[in-house]
Every structure is written in structure tokens, then in C-alpha cells.
Simulated scan of single mutants.
Amino acid sequence: MTIRVLVAEDQSAVRAGLVLILRSAPDIEVVGEAGDGERAVALARELRPDLVLMDVQMPRLDGVSATRQVVAEKLADVLVLTTFDLDEYVFGALRAGASGFLLKNTEARELLDAVRTVGRGEGLIAPAVTRRLIAEFAGQPAASRPAPEPAALEQLTRREREVLSCLGGGLSNAEIARRLDMAEATVKTHVSRLLAKLELRSRVQAAVLAQEWGI
């Protein structure tokens, strides 16, 4: 399967480098480039890529706002790319519905792997950011963590809760399948159902929610 990617980055030199890396992979096709958030949304509507590689800080419309529009209109999945790992950017991107969050200092191979991961419909957060988020939640006293909404949890089956727990641990579909001894296709079904029940836009949002709830 070829993953069609739109690259949104305001710095032309950085954008050219990203495009060069992406075009080195036979299973990835760069279908368009945008230098600002408004252009990124317009091209997403026109080209309907599988994935938008979205910078956070861009003129006219920032990457978080652009991500929100792309996701709301179901134009493509979004992998946010930034030099910053501040909470406001991480949570802003995740609340906007981004499927992944990656730092710009990521190696070329890791960037390609991230595009493939999100292209398969799985979420991804940069390992450094994931470790910091987990450490933050783990360091909180249990009483200070947001309590799970009983009504929300009651909607989930036992299997869906188990899958949600695995998402909170950052596991991929294949890893969840091995851990819970089920087919990968079944895992995808459970993920889709729990996202719908919890009214979430992405599995990454589910992972953060699981961590917040201590599930």
C-alpha cells in the first residue's frame, strides 16, 4: 500500500528535507506541500491525502488549528512534527485529533516508520514525549488523577477495557494481539468500538485517557 502524504512546514529548507526523506521510501508518495496552515487545509480538501505531516508553528493558521479542521472534516490522519515537546503543544495536538506527535530531531528512519505506523491507522507519540507523559502520570498521587467516568467505563466490554489498558501502555495492534491472544483484525475492531463509545478521535487520545484514568 502506498501512503499519500501532504507535507505542511513553513520553513522551505526543512520542508525540502522532509520531502526528500519521504520520497526515498518506495511505499510513500508526497502528493503536495504547504507553507502555512490555511494552505495545508485547502490542499487536504483538494488532494485527500492519507496523512498530513503537520508543523505546529506556521503563519496564517497554526498547526494545531489546522489539525483540528483536517480531522473534523475527516480529510486525513495527521502526524504533528515540531521542535518543541512542551505539554501545551502535545495536548493541543492530541485534543485536536492528531494521530501522532513527533519531534523534528527524529532520525530519518524513525520518521518513515512513524508515517507508516500512522498510515496503518495506529497512533504514535515520540518516545521521549511518551516517557515524560507516563512519568508525569505515574508521579501523581492516585487521588489527584482524574477518576474514570463510571458511565463511560460501563459502556466498554471487558475486552475493550483490556485493549484500552494496552493502548495506555503504548502498545501497537500487533503487540496487543499477542498480549491478549487475539487476531490483529479483532484488535482493530475493539479499538474502533471503544473510540466510538468514548467519543474520541484517535487511539492516541485513548492512550492518554487510559493514563489519566490509571487504567
Rank of each mutant, 00 (worst) to 15 (best):
A185W: 01
V129R: 02
R193P: 03
A114L: 04
A126S: 13
A207Q: 09
Q205I: 07
S172V: 01
D27C: 00
A93G: 13
A66R: 07
T67Q: 08
R109I: 13
S12M: 09
L20R: 13
R120K: 14
R23T: 12
A177S: 11
L94F: 15
V64H: 07
G37Q: 05
T67L: 12
D77S: 14
G32P: 06
L43Q: 07
R201A: 15
E29I: 07
A210T: 10
G32V: 03
D55R: 02
V80L: 04
K104R: 14
E136D: 12
V80Y: 06
M58A: 00
Q205V: 07
A66Y: 04
E122M: 10
R39W: 00
M182R: 13
P49M: 02
A142I: 14
V52N: 02
V30Q: 11
A16R: 07
A207H: 09
D27F: 05
L153M: 12
V52Y: 03
G97T: 06
A98Q: 11
R60S: 04
A114P: 03
V163W: 04
R159L: 13
R132W: 05
A34L: 03
E149D: 15
A210W: 10
M58D: 05
A96P: 14
R68A: 10
I176A: 06
L43G: 01
P59Q: 00
P127G: 04
